[in-house]
Write a protein that binds this DNA or RNA. Sequence first.
DNA 1: TCTGGGGTCCTAGGACCC
DNA 2: TCTGGGGTCCTAGGACCC
Length: 430
Amino acid sequence: MLLKKTYALIDCNNFYVSCERVFDPRLENRPVIVMSNNDGCVVARSDEVKALGVAMGVPVFKIRDLIERHRMVLYSSNYTLYGDMSRRVMKTLAGFTPDLEIYSIDEAFLDLSGFGYKNLTDYGRVIRRTVKRWTGIPVSVGIAPTKTLAKIANHLAKKSPKADGVLDLTDSPYLDHALAAVGVKNVWGVGPAHARRLRKIGIENALQLRDADDRWVQKHMSVVGLRTVYELRGRPCYDLETAPAPQKGLACSKSFGRPVESLADLAEAVALYATRAAERLRRQKLAAGALCVFVMTNLFSKKDRRYFNSHTTELPVATSDTAELISYALAALEKIYRPGHKFKKAGVICDQLTCRNKIQLNLFDPVDRPRSRRLMQTLDAVNALYAPDTLRYAAAGLDRPWKTRFEKRSCRYTTNWNELPRAKISLQPS
DNA sequence: TCTGGGGTCCTAGGACCC
DNA sequence: TCTGGGGTCCTAGGACCC
């Protein structure tokens, strides 16, 4: 007899907005938006903004009127801050159980199987209260016998005022009722394409999906869809992944602040992205066996000609050396560059990642590997000691007129001594 | 004027081999 | 007249996640 499983999903509410609010309490109860890179899209919304009908991912320029009318507060994304706040939240959660899976920047699964708690809802409340007190971030807690059901419990915990942020669906007499209240597109694993297809055959909510025909699901949604259905029935298909699987690819790409036409500007951008990719490879002790470079024009533009192209280079020896990756990247760029286009985005993708210590050497390798490694270690050490980019390759440019916009970024309150928050205290007689 | 970035997995179909 | 069958590997594309 298998022991019954119990999973909790802890999800930070409006995470990026909540991070901004921790350091500026005046934002409480006000409509707040955090924008994507380049200040392009809406990626986080406060409840006030959601109530006004602003959807996730809409372009900011399309809701300018709404923003002004409701005096919404806008922020550029500040990933340094969000990353550090995430670490604090996860560290707090780790205090509750060693069986923790950090699922994303703002979500974690906890395995509560066999904890023997009589009242899991109370335990959820303790978690919620502790995270709020220690980090300032509000979270919701969903508890259930599978991860997919825990996701649903969490979704409802956020929406229902009665739940007050915590919902336990294990052995719940209201389970069917709860599933019927969740639209099929809100089920974990069902995206827009499958939701459309399901709706066509009359499946609108999670309850109907749970009771769907297995063969139909397998045929149209593959085994992945079938697992989702099993999980809705309470049969776990996904266990906690406490040790993350080794990464397979690593991408570095960004839209430009303004269109780029010359090969010289494009080359600077590609060299910079190759630099960033190399830094991330080294930080994770990885090396890339292949390198792909792509460029593209604005795919939304109706008046300009569209162009997309990419080129992949198989590297003779897997590497994380910045200079080497830059030189391959620039050679690839020359192959795919076409003059006369307004480029909007470029990127570098590293593939066939291997652990740095398991690199297959090549007899005819022209590079002095030990020397390259020492050089990169020195470069990283200098940049860590002083500031990022203190030492850098000239190919990546200095002015970078094409660089991504971040016009409304808040301070890096928790990771930079020069940007610590200031508090003013006035003592008044009581 | 203005539309993000970084990942994973599965499947079908072609290439290739014997 | 009549032109195999079955296995493996790789890749592109499509779906999903945050």
